[in-house]
């Protein structure tokens, strides 16, 4: 289908983009989620502002104890980035499994977080390392931890006039990995789990088991308490209540979360 009538502007600076968003425009990043939604008329913004011309939103650099990733950095660039690979491998791996090669060349890390799909891979991977975003609006900048950013299906705590400018990834998560299960290469994860072995223990976060990415508290408690990965996998379903749908039953998805957590934990050690 054809999207409904809209106005298009391309911002050349963050301030210009914020002014457009303040006037009611929807940010357009890689378009890999927004455009299909507009074609299906699930979204019908009266105006969009293209963030594709803002150079300072693209790129990866070190900043103290964190890696700063520009919101418009593509999945392909995140997957191949040496800094992210070294310090937050789970995020690079999650990015490398998004959609297809062509989709990864346009879809962005900021768009994935703002879109907040309950089956998105990046949100779970970034939750596993305890990342955050920098949001900027007319009143200035604020930092939002990933756990506070995504509040429900396709819903975030961003204000209507804020855009994500940066994603912050804490260093020290080199020993980490992402495991996902899906039926066809192009499909979204039915369930995906990111595991990071950090200085303060193992963190595990899953996508596809709730209306937002969640920590797998049962798995974490078991593995940090000295349980084997197999035992911990059995505890992964504690505290999560995934919705049964065509992909599988609640029990099946709980089981999948445990299996994937154990796989990711194993891979994170190597």
């Amino acid at each position: 289908m054809i999207p409904s009538t809209l106005e298009y502007t391309k911002a050349s600076s963050i301030d210009e983009a914020i002014a457009a968003v303040q006037a009611g425009a929807r940010p357009l990043a890689g378009g890999q989620s927004l455009m299909p939604m507009m074609r299906l008329r699930l979204a019908a913004p009266g105006a969009v502002v293209d963030l594709g011309g803002i150079a300072e939103l693209v790129g990866v650099c070190e900043d103290g104890d964190e890696i700063a990733v520009g919101a418009m950095t593509t999945h392909r660039a995140v997957a191949a980035d040496p800094l992210i690979g070294e310090h937050c491998r789970v995020v690079a791996q999650a990015a490398s499994g998004v959609g297809s090669l062509v989709i990864r060349g346009r879809g962005t890390i900021g768009g994935s977080l703002a879109h907040a799909d309950p089956h998105g891979d990046l949100p779970a991977a970034i939750l596993a390392v305890g990342g955050a975003v920098i949001a900027r609006g007319p009143g200035g900048e604020r930092r939002i931890e990933i756990g506070d950013l995504i509040t429900s299906y396709l819903t975030t705590s961003l204000a209507d006039d804020e855009i994500i400018t940066q994603v912050r990834l804490p260093k020290g998560n080199g020993r980490s990995a992402y495991a996902k299960f899906h039926r066809r290469a192009i499909d979204w994860s039915i369930v995906g789990v990111g595991v990071a072995i950090g200085a303060d223990g193992v963190r595990a976060a899953a996508t596809g088991v709730a209306d937002r990415p969640v920590r797998l508290a049962g798995f974490e408690a078991a593995i940090n308490g000295g349980a084997s990965a197999e035992e911990a996998a059995r505890a992964a379903g504690e505290g999560i209540d995934p919705t049964a749908d065509l992909d599988g039953s609640t029990e099946y998805k709980r089981h999948l979360a445990g299996v994937l957590a154990a796989q990711a934990h194993q891979a994170a050690q190597g």
């Binding site: 062509v102 989709i103 346009r106």
Partner: peptide
């Protein structure tokens, strides 16, 4: 209608893209 099939792939400044997920004005 969901950017899933790849039939519409063209090159935009040398990069393969799904032409159903890009506006002509872009």
């Amino acid at each position: 209608d969901t950017s899933t099939c790849g039939c519409c792939t063209v090159h935009l400044d040398g990069e393969p893209v799904l032409s159903c997920s890009v506006l002509a004005v872009q």
